[in-house]
Design a protein around this nucleic acid. Structure first.
Lengths: 354, 354
DNA sequence: TGGATTTGAGTTAACGTTAACGCAGGGATC
DNA sequence: GATCCCTGCGTTAACGTTAACTCAAATCCA
């Protein structure tokens, strides 16, 4: 089954050479209108579809991109992937999905696979700052774009394309809001120490503390892994302190959800007893029963820009052009930080805006 | 950049023919141990990776599968995709992600693309019962597996492999629970009429009504589209009736989340004023602030089984073997249906089980 | 009307891998 | 010592498309 009809099959039927068929089907010159029409009608009859593999072998291009993420269960990624997938499709590219599960050897395995398959470029999302796999790709001048992460340390690595949100500003905005809501002792659930996202957001956190003249010892930091259970664990630890923080900032919403669970499990109320802040504005943060204050970023656009950037590098030919884009984060105020308790009404959004 | 070293490059360096290199690198006989070792060491030095495109052109196999879903933002799909992606990787296959956005012409476009790329098989998830695109694939004997959907109507279509949860039973269990909680007037937020998932779940709903001797006119059904906003809209309509239902069954959790919003927006309390039931047990349904009763299904396993089934068909050679697997759903009781209000304690699960 | 150009094809090779086949030399067999 | 087979390679073609090159016939222009 399923042996596709080829250009040569059509050639045989039409009684011409395969090159003539090629010319007919690809609008090339040097063919008469009549044979062209005849060949096209035969091709339609046989429902001819060109074999992309063979095309790729000749052209050296596969019109395929690798999307390397940690795990699709972190709701941030599906929202990002939407923009990536839709834009890639629009531009005629396919996406191969690769989930590393935070395992750098799986990442290596995936990169080898993607290179073997001849993908034209790769999209990497947040993980380690120093990533030998990526360093290697950069050395080889392989087209790639980083989304929501930066890397550093290795020579030449500064010239890598990326699209990020301003995480420093995001961290700053988040904690500034907490401070304005009256919190001076803040527990931060951060990410792994080798994550650029976590590092940047923490810098913003510290900036806010400094700027508002607060005591740095009132800043508590625990490391999570960006997943919900680690948010739960960290919040549990914060709450079991003799002097627990009055606010918790989960460096992403997913961990903040875990923290939310922990807070409720401890018999406390969010916003009345303890403020909670997240980062990313995943869809569920806006639910009425959650109302998590957070830092919003344009995930769909981020994905879309990343794909445009990557394809520009692949097709554009301008080898030296470096595209590094930093988007602005938004402070999104919901009830979890007690804004409404202070007599203000939380700016509600209509459902259609969600 | 990035012109891979080929078998011929290595042959030139080693001073042998490319066939000899091939034999060395693929553990073929008819080669001496010494030349073999020499060639392998050269290959390692040059970091040789075989060109999968060329291999595929010869073998007719790409070790690639297409995953066709409606939209990755419905949280059901990431949870399913996890199992698919992990299993595919384990078995040496790659996944091309295709989101149709419920548009059958986009689906067609994607199918053509996948066939052009020579994918070895496709995985389709829930959409229409009658899908000409799929009928066509079945006619062509193209390896495919349906996840969480059935199709019918067209000859030969009964022999398609699928993996589903028993949606009839799931619908039954959901409504049976509502009935046991004392609800006799139930609003169902269903899916599009051409969705097999929605149809089956509705059958289960009706079965439960009949079996418990309830009046069918007390069963209200509105059509949603499986997405959250449509759940909101439908619930709004239910609540604005002169005689609103005392329970709402969202045929998937995502729409139930929308219904939850609508209920709260109407100033009502879930479980005290109106019961709410979902289907799928997406991760967020278990959050303490949501506690949505729902029908659970093993999504990861479903994805994993689907991939195994598909690859068995591709590689197994047993062309006539039809694999149709129906998994059992679980009733998951949480607070949204008022179980706890009746003096029972809701069976809580420890955090690690979530 | 004869030479130059254009038109409408066909032939051939290339992309990188796989695989069928060929072939010389050497050891075993009778 | 002739036959046979095995070992260790090389040669060649194939997968389906693209593209450079060739070439005869038709057309054009002076």
């Amino acid at each position: 089954m399923r042996r596709h009809t080829t250009i040569k099959d059509i050639a045989k039927v039409a009684g011409v050479s395969h090159t003539t068929v090629y010319r007919a089907l690809n609008d090339k010159p040097r063919i008469s209108q009549s044979t062209k029409e005849q060949i096209i009608s035969i091709a339609q009859e046989f429902n001819y579809q060109p074999n992309v593999l063979a095309q790729s072998l000749v052209s050296g291009r596969t019109k395929t991109l690798g999307l390397v993420i940690t795990t699709i269960v972190n709701p941030f990624y599906p929202e990002l992937a939407r923009g990536i997938e839709a834009t890639a499709r629009f531009l005629g590219y396919s996406i191969i999905l690769c989930c590393t599960n935070f395992d750098i050897s799986v990442e290596k395995q995936y990169i080898d696979m993607l290179r073997s398959r001849g993908v034209d470029g790769m999209i990497f999302t947040s993980a380690h700052i120093h990533d030998p796999n990526i360093t290697r790709l950069v050395e080889d001048n392989f087209p790639l774009v980083l989304v929501n992460r930066k890397i550093s340390g290795d020579p030449g690595i500064e010239a890598v394309d990326y699209v990020v949100v301003d995480n420093v500003m995001g961290g700053y905005l988040a904690v500034e809001h907490l401070i304005k809501m009256g919190h001076q002792r803040i527990g931060v659930i951060s990410g792994p120490s080798d994550s650029s996202v976590a590092a940047d957001r923490l810098v913003g956190v510290r900036n806010a503390f400094t700027e508002y003249g607060l005591n740095p010892t009132e800043l508590l930091v625990l490391e999570g892994d960006f997943l919900k259970p680690s948010g739960y664990e960290a919040a549990r630890k914060f709450l079991s302190l003799r002097n627990p923080p009055s606010a918790i900032f989960g460096i992403n919403d997913y961990m903040a959800m875990g923290a939310l669970e922990a807070i409720l499990d401890s018999g406390l109320r969010v916003s009345e007893d303890i403020a909670l802040m997240g980062f990313n504005d995943i869809e569920f943060s806006s639910l009425r029963t959650i109302e998590l204050s957070t830092i919003g970023q344009k995930k769909y656009e981020m994905g879309s820009i990343a794909v445009h950037t990557l394809i520009e590098r692949i097709e554009g030919g301008d080898w030296d052009k470096v595209t590094q884009i930093t988007l602005e984060p938004d402070l999104i105020i919901r009830r979890s930080c007690g804004y409404h308790l202070r007599g203000y009404t939380v700016p509600t959004r209509s459902y259609s805006q969600i």
